[in-house]
Design a protein around this nucleic acid. Structure first.
Lengths: 144, 144
DNA sequence: GCCATTTAGTTGGTGATACCAATCAATGTA
DNA sequence: TACATTGATTGGTATCACCAACTAAATGGC
């Protein structure tokens, strides 16, 4: 099924990436749901694994409005996944840390996602996996 | 087992796919937002481009509960993107069609997504693009 | 044929998500 | 010091997605 880029038709490579992304999204969603997390909370925890950003930076990472992040952190804090920590430099800024419990959840999520991604990649040879990593790095490198 | 699957740490290939998927997701989200659509509505329109499924099949496609799809179609119909059509075979089933306006939106969305994906893939050689398509098909083929 | 069961879809209720506009407090700057 | 800017929150709205309960239509058993 070779494609022609007709009116509004997506190109083969666009189509391929979109389809795979939805499959990956499904893996992430199901993994998150298993721990009663939303996809955004999963991302949040992933980001906080090796960072303690302020609200603005977090909004930037997640591509969300700051007010959205306020609510997100409210709910995550209520569930003891993260902690708000006032900055000592600037009394306006709030830094976000993963709580110990949040870190544990992060580890469990990582395992779940790994397992399910393994299923998704079942039958994909090592060579192709290396290609995935290589090409992904290229794509992400040029993505500001 | 060339890798150490340490505590909750994601493997390189998992990480690569997740990162790229979020980048693609961002492309889709921004394209959808430009036409005041949600990501789910974008998917809906994509699905209806070459199908007229009933509610149950649509729920299956989208991985959503049937009640979620009811609301989704309510809102899409209110915006004249889709049309509910009663089946003649079985008075219980409702078939969903793209409206003419919905089809136009689908074409514009396709163009937007293509353009933004082109940006995302800026600098990726043709050979790698072919690899993406090839590997994606493999992954999706084994994904029941 | 008739009634129980199954199937398709909707409704109502809840919580999460995300936006915008407006606000408040702390900083910076003229 | 007065004014503007910045970081974050609040309030209001709409969407999204779930579950449980419900209606209507079709099926199956007898």
């Amino acid at each position: 099924m070779s494609e022609k880029p007709a009116t509004g038709e997506t190109t083969p490579v666009t189509d391929a990436l979109v389809q795979v992304s939805f499959a990956v999204l499904d893996v992430l969603n199901r993994s998150a749901a298993e721990l009663d997390l939303s996809l955004t909370q999963l991302r949040l925890i992933g980001i906080l694994r090796d960072r303690s950003p302020n609200m603005a930076a977090l909004a930037e990472f997640l591509g969300l409005d700051r007010s959205s992040v306020s609510g997100l952190i409210d709910r995550a804090e209520r569930r003891d996944l993260v902690v708000r920590r006032p900055s000592t430099d600037d009394a306006r800024v709030t830094l976000i840390d993963l709580s110990p419990a949040g870190r544990k959840v992060g580890e469990r999520i990582g395992e779940l996602v790994n397992a399910r991604m393994d299923e998704l990649l079942n039958g994909i040879p090592v060579g192709d996996r290396d290609q995935i990593v290589r090409i992904a790095q290229r794509v992400l490198a040029s993505d500001t």
